[in-house]
């Protein structure tokens, strides 16, 4: 049996409370507040206490999907990436890089946001990149 507590950060509001995921055999069973954390000092709000609930939800996407004739099909990563790269490449070819926009997210990490804008500005060649902080 494998049981561990993994320190992390609440995925919800911008307060950034320290949490511990309770992990039993590769499943998160709950959350505890990180007692010695400088932000929340061992306390959480209702969202923080339930910060794990969505992780193992049956509706999570488990594979890339491709829509053909109005219906989604599971496809391999290879196929999904190739299709996406081809379609984006075609559109850039035909209409220029600024015909593509990228919306990044306040839910992904710094490193991922960094790569997302790097991708937009290098691979696509556009500054059309924004996120929902305005909203």
């Amino acid at each position: 049996m494998d049981y561990k507590l993994v320190p992390s950060v609440c995925p919800y509001c911008g307060t950034g409370c320290g949490i511990l995921y309770k992990v039993l055999n590769d499943r998160i069973t709950g959350v505890l507040p990180l007692k010695s954390h400088p932000v929340n000092e061992g306390k959480l709000c209702i969202k923080g206490w339930n910060a794990h609930a969505y992780v193992h939800h049956p509706l999570r996407l488990k594979a890339p999907l491709l829509k053909t004739e109005g219906r989604f099909h599971k496809v391999s990563w290879d196929r999904a990436i190739r299709t996406t790269a081809d379609r984006l490449g075609d559109i850039r070819e035909k209409h220029g890089p600024d015909a593509i926009g990228v919306l990044v997210s306040a839910k992904i990490t710094n490193e991922e946001n960094f790569l997302a804008q790097k991708f937009a500005r290098t691979a696509l060649g556009t500054n059309n990149i924004d996120h929902c902080a305005r909203l």
Binding site: M1, Y3, K4, L5, L34, K35, S36, H37
Partner: peptide
Amino acid sequence: DLFLGYRAVEGHPIPWV
């Protein structure tokens, strides 16, 4: 078989098996 106590993880005591 197992012992539940605390272990320092990067300076923070965290429950540990």
